[in-house]
């Protein structure tokens, strides 16, 4: 809806969605190139920066379009650690370098051990939650 995030950027991160190439290590930062395996992907590659010292959390993702030109940069900031191991960012900032537009997503009230069960994911339950 007029956002700089594509569905592809928000969908779940699965190992098999990319092939990987380790690029370099800068202190705690590990830079990895990820090439989408889906031929319909909007990108040729993503350059992802992981932070080894902070539970391998992602600091930054650079998206390259089908013409291999830098299209967008996504930065994760305002990190908190939950349950001593889950790093979650409160702010996602996506900047589109070609249109100079940006979208900021703010998250709050991360809740772990929310006590959800399979019954909370039936069609009826999801409809109720979405109301």
């Amino acid at each position: 809806m007029g956002s700089e995030f594509a569905y592809e950027d928000l969908s779940s991160q699965e190992i098999e969605k990319y092939s990987y190439k380790f690029l370099e290590e800068k202190g705690d930062l590990l830079i990895v190139e990820q090439d989408p395996t889906d031929p319909k992907s909007g990108y040729t590659r993503r350059i992802v920066t992981y932070n080894k010292g902070k539970g391998y959390r992602i600091e930054k993702v650079e998206f390259y379009d089908r013409k291999n030109a830098l299209l967008k940069t996504l930065k994760y900031t305002d990190y908190n650690v939950y349950k001593k191991k889950f790093w979650r960012a409160k702010t996602f900032t996506m900047v589109n370098h070609q249109s100079n537009k940006e979208t900021i997503l703010n998250f709050r009230n991360y809740d772990f051990d929310a006590g959800l069960t399979e019954d909370d994911f039936t069609q009826v339950a999801l409809k109720r939650a979405g109301r």
Binding site: T117, D119, T122, V124, A125
Partner: peptide
């Protein structure tokens, strides 16, 4: 009024 429990609503 709505009440949901487990598999029913």
């Amino acid at each position: 009024y709505q009440k949901a429990k487990g598999k029913w609503e």
